[in-house]
Simulated assay, not measured.
Amino acid sequence: MMSAAACFLLFSGLVAVLGPPVLRRITHGGRAPRLGVIAWSAAIAAVVLSWAMAALLLVLDLPRYRARSGESMIGACLARLQESIGGADTAFEVAGVAAATAVVSITVWITGRLAVGLMRLRIRTHGHARRARLIGHQVRGVDAVVIDNPERAAYCAAGRPHAVVITTAALAALDDRQVQAVLAHERAHLAGHHAQILAVLRVLAASLPGTTLFTAGAVEVGRLLEMCADDRAARAHGSRALLSGLLALCAPAQVPDGALGAGNIALLDRASRLASPPRRAEKVRVCLLSAAVVAMVTAAPLALAVLEVTGTMWCLPMAS
């Protein structure tokens, strides 16, 4: 188990350090945004699960090293602790309680942060969707809630039911094709559960701000999700209508916390991408690279787990 734990930690460290520059280089241009989201998410999930597996294996392995204290790193630590405070039982109990407490505390803390973050997002977005339907009104030909506001804005808020909101100022600035394209962009966010994905990544980034993979991942995935919504809207209503609609909404506007606005994130990059779509060969290359990253970060921890379960762990020559 010690060898497996060391391999999980080594793998997670490599992905956490090397992942951000590699993933940013592959995905930043948005040539395959959906695969880019999957690649970042897979890397982040692999690191978190590898940390959890390493911690679990170390805790489960403590009893075995109680009797074989001289054959491993854990055993050496227990022996040193025994010399300091006396008694193998005391050393084992102190080490076991400390390790278990640390593992449980970190796991509960991160899980709690995720649960609280998602609950707060749900409360905010459901509340805003409800208020928008109460204060807004319908306009013929516009499949959205229209709110009187001098700022040009369009955004979506998850709720029961969901609400796609557009302001009167935005309606005045857009023609009918642009309105339909912008609203299709917002509906794509709701269909893809993009707000929930971003909420999880942002809570992880806030919980572990020193981990570049998490902080960069939250930013990059936010850009890529906007591009995913752009692609879906452009397929239905054309790139030109969406591009001109987004540019008309580029003036700063206040969007409720937890909502996703059409013109709020990486607008210049998205506009350039819509105006000059990537060549097919370049898109295929990025798809293959992204798929390779997903396969690697998914297969490696699974392979480590299989090797440990089958008793063929070979990563480090430690006691087994």
Rank of each mutant, 00 (worst) to 15 (best):
residue 33 P to C: 07
residue 60 L to E: 12
residue 167 T to A: 07
residue 256 P to D: 10
residue 15 V to K: 07
residue 128 H to R: 10
residue 170 A to E: 00
residue 277 P to Q: 08
residue 286 V to K: 03
residue 48 V to H: 01
residue 43 A to D: 01
residue 133 R to G: 15
residue 244 S to I: 00
residue 208 L to D: 07
residue 212 T to L: 14
residue 241 A to Q: 02
residue 83 E to M: 11
residue 90 T to K: 06
residue 218 A to T: 07
residue 258 G to K: 11
residue 182 V to M: 07
residue 103 V to I: 11
residue 33 P to M: 13
residue 178 Q to A: 14
residue 35 L to S: 02
residue 201 L to N: 00
residue 99 A to E: 06
residue 227 M to P: 03
residue 107 T to C: 08
residue 68 R to C: 03
residue 18 L to R: 06
residue 179 V to K: 04
residue 17 V to L: 15
residue 204 L to T: 00
residue 128 H to W: 12
residue 146 V to I: 08
residue 73 M to A: 15
residue 19 G to A: 06
residue 37 V to Y: 00
residue 261 G to S: 08
residue 258 G to A: 13
residue 158 A to R: 13
residue 212 T to E: 15
residue 234 A to Y: 05
residue 299 A to T: 13
residue 75 G to Y: 02
residue 21 P to E: 13
residue 16 A to I: 02
residue 26 I to A: 09
residue 50 S to W: 11
residue 307 L to H: 09
residue 111 T to D: 04
residue 221 V to K: 01
residue 30 G to V: 06
residue 13 G to N: 13
residue 65 Y to P: 00
residue 278 P to E: 10
residue 75 G to S: 06
residue 14 L to M: 14
residue 47 V to F: 02
residue 54 A to Y: 09
residue 22 V to W: 07
residue 119 M to S: 15
residue 49 L to M: 12
residue 85 I to V: 15
residue 54 A to F: 09
residue 152 R to V: 01
residue 130 R to T: 13
residue 108 V to I: 14
residue 234 A to P: 06
residue 276 S to H: 15
residue 14 L to D: 03
residue 89 D to V: 03
residue 36 G to V: 06
residue 97 V to A: 15
